[in-house]
Design a protein around this nucleic acid. Structure first.
Length: 678
DNA sequence: GGGAATGCGTTTTTT
DNA sequence: ACGCATTCCC
């Protein structure tokens, strides 16, 4: 098997792909073949004899990793499928399961997703009596987000409070105490939240020399995609893993950094050469995705950015259809317009699969979804509320979790309250008793409960959990047991039992792929299925569908035609980002990401009113200030600007659309890592 | 005391 | 439609 790299790559890409050793930074603008470069580099590494298992590809989603390895296999051969790949979180999970003891945990720890962790925090808040106070105490979700930010940015709680919630500064001490008890309680319950996965991996690598040596030796080459969206913790982990061979390639684009709300810091990119002074830096500037008019708009959006990183993308992709900015009365008119345009494009031969509607927030497409339904246009929705976040799915998962880890208090709290006559107080009492017994289920059958309404129910629950904990039963069998028990409990909580049961059935198809229940549950938390919440109208097997997505979930993807909806002040940019400059700048980059998803056709839609809960926003919304900034620049905002308020009745005609190893030994690298990360 | 029913305000982005 | 707080009822 030969690899004709020169024929497939431009000089800059080729350079990045061919230098197999040493640290490398690739700055890759949108559409410049970043993924291509990574894929070819993986193939080239394997081709040159590096064992696939010793290559680690860290990406933003697991889907991205799978896709890249599939492509690498297509270029070279099946060996590429054996490359280790995934997200930082999934990799951390893998390592921590192997070294649970060294990390201070027991085997079979369970994962808390953000809402689980918020629930646990709420329990502790109630324990500490912080509920019944004169002053309002922050909501559980707010506290959870704060704690998470402390971890992911490495900044002190006080600073973050001062910045974001000055009204809660007076509660600093109470919050710090809560933070401590939250940390202790998780250990006690043998659970980790998302942040613990990263923290514990880093701590493991720092504190356990032997483990670090083993991992750093076994990963001969490490590649990190979307490096601009990593946080400090992740950068530290990547550096530690590369401490032996220094073969770390990071790829990213500062202009596409859109996850700072999660602690991502694009300075990781800027500082990379500081950490690895021998780093080779490659910049990819030729865009292979979009036409010049689309790119011009992208460049213009960046041009008004507060912090400029001079990078001008150019393209040779032919095409001169200018982007269109369309002003509409409201989001119903917007939905009409988008549908008609989509159908028109399809007539012209653009397949549905090559079109996407992108939005700042998942709910922005709600009105459109109804309209698409009316017109029988099949679609899939990405981003926003996940399948696994639906209350009934969480309920069943909580049951399953207790089979794996009977110390998981958040799961207990959820499960117990499913029973008639059980509220927060009883649930907490019983789960407290189980926890105090180290996870023994005996308290469920305690004589004191016998006379209660739920006495018998709890005995049945005990039997169920014992069965779920048994080794001989398969994952799908356990799931079936849990659903069967849950079916009887549903009417207390929901009136649409049938619909929810159907969702649970789809869990079943997933469960079939797993031999271990904890793997199944972990994957549900860390790598949730991206199925649209809306039932696929016709058949699941529909092979032509339109993509609806949040801009965040559209990262790295591309379509022939892209519609960006709700470009209205307060919607996009989100109103909460308008006071804060750094947040506003991130909205700008977010719009940049959105428009650079388009290959040939780009529609920017500005509904003047956006419906909320049936009604309308009080006042009429101006066009997004992000676009106003571009307009102010003059010729670069050279889009087709049209108003389309009236002519939208079904069937009416309108104007239609056209529109490594190189330097430094392990010790030297380590000391640099140490001095950088402290 | 604790659980259930009622009413109100509210929607960012994700591992 | 959902989470939250208040009120109502056993």
């Amino acid at each position: 098997m030969t690899l004709d790299l020169a024929a497939q790559l431009n000089p800059a890409q080729l350079e990045a792909v061919q230098s197999l050793d040493g640290p490398q930074l690739v700055i890759a603008g949108a559409g410049t073949g970043k993924t291509r470069t990574l894929v070819y580099r993986v193939a080239n590494l394997v081709h040159s004899g590096v064992a696939p298992e010793s290559i680690l590809l860290l990406t933003f989603t697991r889907r991205a990793a799978r896709e890249m390895l599939r492509r690498a296999s297509g270029i070279l051969d099946e060996r590429c499928q054996r490359v280790a790949g995934g997200t930082f979180h999934s990799f951390a999970n893998l390592v921590l399961r192997r070294y649970a003891q060294q990390a201070g945990y027991a085997d079979g720890f369970t994962i808390l997703d953000s809402s689980d962790s918020a629930d646990l925090i709420a329990l502790l808040r109630a324990d500490a009596g912080l509920n019944k106070r004169e002053r309002r105490f922050p909501k559980k979700g707010t506290i959870q987000a704060l704690f998470s930010r402390v971890i992911n940015t490495g900044r002190p709680l006080e600073e973050l409070l001062d910045e974001q919630y000055p009204q809660f500064l007076e509660e600093l001490e109470a919050l710090e105490a809560l933070q401590r008890s939250y940390g202790e309680r998780k250990k006690l319950q043998n659970v980790m939240d998302f942040d613990d996965l990263l923290v514990n991996l880093r701590d493991l690598l720092v504190a356990h020399e032997g483990v670090r040596q083993r991992l750093a030796s076994s990963y001969r080459s490490i590649l990190v995609d979307e490096y601009q969206d990593t946080n400090r913790l992740q950068a530290h982990i990547a550096a530690l893993l590369a401490s032996r061979h220094s073969n770390l390639m990071v790829v990213g684009d500062d202009a596409q950094s859109i996850y700072s709300f999660r602690g991502a810091d694009f300075r990781n990119i800027m500082d990379f050469p500081q950490l690895f002074p021998q780093a080779k830096v490659t910049t990819l500037e030729q865009n292979y995705r979009s036409t010049q008019p689309v790119l011009d708009l992208g460049n213009a959006i960046l041009a008004s950015a507060r912090e400029k990183f001079d990078k001008r993308l150019f393209t040779e992709v032919p095409g001169d259809v200018r982007p269109r900015l369309i002003h509409l009365e409201d989001d119903y008119a917007q939905a009409q317009y988008v549908c008609r345009e989509i159908l028109a494009l399809r007539e012209e031969g653009v397949p549905l699969t090559a079109m996407a509607v992108l939005a700042r927030a998942a709910w922005h497409t709600n009105v459109l979804e109804v309209e698409l339904g009316h017109r029988n246009i099949p679609f899939r929705k990405f981003g926003g509320l996940r399948f696994v976040e639906a209350a009934h799915v969480k309920d069943v998962c909580a049951l399953l979790k207790l089979g794996v880890n009977p110390r998981d208090e958040a799961a207990w709290f959820r499960v117990l309250q499913l029973y008639e006559g059980v509220g927060p107080a009883t649930a907490q009492r019983v789960s407290g008793a189980v926890l105090a017994a180290g996870g023994d289920l005996a308290p469920l059958a305690a004589p004191a409960l016998a006379g209660r309404r739920y006495g018998e129910d709890f005995k049945a629950l005990k039997a169920l959990l014992e069965h779920l904990a048994r080794d001989g039963t398969t994952v799908p069998e356990k799931l079936a047991l849990a659903i069967e028990a849950y079916r009887d409990l549903m009417p207390k909580k929901y009136d649409d039992v049938q619909r929810r049961l159907r969702d649970l059935e789809s869990l079943d198809t997933m469960a079939a792929h797993y031999a271990q229940m904890d793997d199944f549950l972990t994957d549900l938390a860390i790598d949730p299925p991206e199925m649209g919440r809306r039932e696929e109208t016709a058949e699941d097997t529909e092979d032509e569908w339109l993509t609806l997505s949040t801009v965040h979930s559209a990262k790295g993807l591309e379509w022939d035609a892209v519609f960006v909806v709700n470009l209205t002040e307060g919607q996009f940019p989100h109103y909460r980002s308008m006071e804060d400059e750094t947040a506003y700048e991130e909205e700008r980059r977010l719009l940049y990401v959105a428009v650079t998803r388009a290959r040939r056709r780009l529609y920017l839609l500005h509904p003047q009113a956006v419906s909320r809960r049936g009604g309308y926003q009080d006042d009429f919304g101006a066009v997004s200030p992000l676009l106003a900034d571009v307009e102010a620049l003059g010729p670069l905002g050279d889009w087709v600007d049209e108003e389309n308020f009236w002519d939208l009745e079904e069937g009416s005609e309108d104007d239609g659309g056209d529109g490594g190893g190189a330097g430094g030994d392990s010790g030297e690298v380590l000391s640099r890592i140490q001095s950088y990360f402290g």
